[in-house]
Structures are given as C-alpha cells and as structure tokens.
Computed example of a mutant assay.
Amino acid sequence: MKRILLLFLMLTTTACFAQETEKDQEHSEEVIHHDAGEEGQREEHHNFKHSIAFMLGHTHISEGRDAAGDTKWLAVPSFAIDYNYRFGEKWSVGLHNDIIIESFIVERHLSGGEEEILEREYPVASLVMIGHKFTQHLAGFAGAGAEFAKGENFFMYRFGIEAGWHLNDPSWELLVGINYDIRIDAYDIWNLNFGVAKQF
C-alpha cells in the first residue's frame, strides 16, 4: 500500500512538473512571439518614408489692426496640410501648406523703416521644409517659401518645433507644433498647431 501511495505521489509530482514546464515553455514562446511582434512593429515604423499631416491651428499676429486702425494682437484660425519624406534616420524634406481662414488687417514693415496698412484675404503659405528629429518625440523644421493672397505675395522663412506621439496603430501619429514665420518686407507671425499624421 505504501508503494502504491509512493508511486501515486511520484506520478502526480512528475505530471505537475511536466505541466508547469509546458506552461513555462508556452509562456516563453509567447514572450518571444510578442517581442518579435514589437520588433516587427518598430521595424515597420522605422521603414515609413512618407507622412501626410492634417493640422488645425491658431495664427497669432502682433502687428494686427482693428477697424479703427489701432494696433491689436490678432489670433485667427488656420489649417495646414504637410507632406514629409524621410531620407535618413533623422532627416526629412517636405512641402508644408497652410491657409489662414479669415481676412485681417496688418501693419506692414518695409525695409526702409516705413510702415503701411495691408489687408490680407485668406492668405495661403507654401514652403519647402527640412526637418531633423532630435529625439523620438521631438523634431525641428526650417525652410522657405511664399505667402500668396490677393494684392501681393511675400517671400517667407519658417522655423518650427514639432512633438509627436504614436497612437495604437504605429502608422498614425498625434502632433503638436509651433512655428515662427518671417514674411520679408511685411510682417511676422507665430502659430500653434494640433493634428494627426498618417505615415506610409
């Protein structure tokens, strides 16, 4: 009877040990598979070359004028569509386009120190931008282009910083950006943008 009990205990212990070993092996395989999946996602994300961003923003103009002609700080709505192509691990080139969806009056500063009042109707800006990624979530941009509107067009420079966070789908990114624009012989603005980017 003692031998049967001892044999029963040995078989039970062996069965339990085998079951635990099998569970550990399955868990290890799941971890390996999970890690491989994450690595695949990271690799897939790393291979994205193109991105299109849709941004909503507020453009701030310190040289604005009200209807009475008094100087006024203006905050007007805008939206942007930005395309970027990544040509290196940290570098990109893109075409950034935005429109201010409101007409406004601004004080124009000429190169000779003169000033004049200028009315802008729904100006559209288009710029070629070079981007550099400083960290995983932070990038800087600089470039040049032009602002187009009824009456007169202006050559311009832009400098910006953008922060981005990937969503559950690694091809989508949430973006927050701030830009400073210098319109030659005209006026300066800065704008704050929020939006999403699709990478492919």
Rank of each mutant, 00 (worst) to 15 (best):
G113P: 03
Q25S: 14
L174V: 08
D24H: 10
F200V: 04
A142R: 01
A197H: 01
V176Y: 04
Q41K: 14
E63R: 15
S111E: 15
L174S: 14
F154A: 14
A197S: 13
H166N: 13
D98L: 03
V124L: 10
A197I: 00
V124F: 15
F154D: 07
P123N: 04
G88W: 07
E107L: 13
L174C: 09
I81E: 09
G40F: 09
V106E: 04
K198Q: 08
F48C: 05
H60W: 07
E162A: 08
E43P: 01
Y157S: 09
T13I: 09
I105G: 10
Q136W: 05
L138Q: 06
T135S: 15
P123H: 08
E116D: 14
G40Q: 11
F48N: 04
E43C: 00
T135G: 11
G143P: 00
L127Y: 15
K90Q: 15
N84T: 07
G151H: 02
S111N: 13
N153A: 12
I184F: 11
S78Q: 14
E26C: 03
V196H: 01
I130N: 07
E44I: 04
R65Y: 06
E44P: 00
L175M: 12
G40H: 09
D181L: 10
V124C: 06
F159H: 00
T12R: 04
Y180S: 08
G94R: 01
F200T: 01
H50K: 02
D82H: 12
K72I: 05
N153E: 06
K49P: 00
E119W: 03
H33F: 10
E147I: 06
E102A: 08
A139K: 09
M55E: 09
E38Q: 08
S111F: 11
K150R: 09
L74T: 07
P123E: 04
E173G: 00
L7N: 13
Q19K: 10
E107P: 01
G40T: 05
A53Y: 02
Q41E: 12
G40S: 12
R158P: 01
H132A: 08
E44H: 07
L74D: 10
H58V: 13
I4D: 15
E162R: 13
E89T: 10
Y83N: 13
A75F: 05
I117E: 15
I161L: 09
T12K: 03
G113K: 02
W73Q: 13
D35C: 08
A36S: 11
G145Q: 00
L175Y: 03
P170H: 11
R86K: 15
L11T: 02
I182S: 07
H34I: 04
S78A: 13
K150P: 00
A144E: 00
G164N: 10
G160T: 00
I101Q: 11
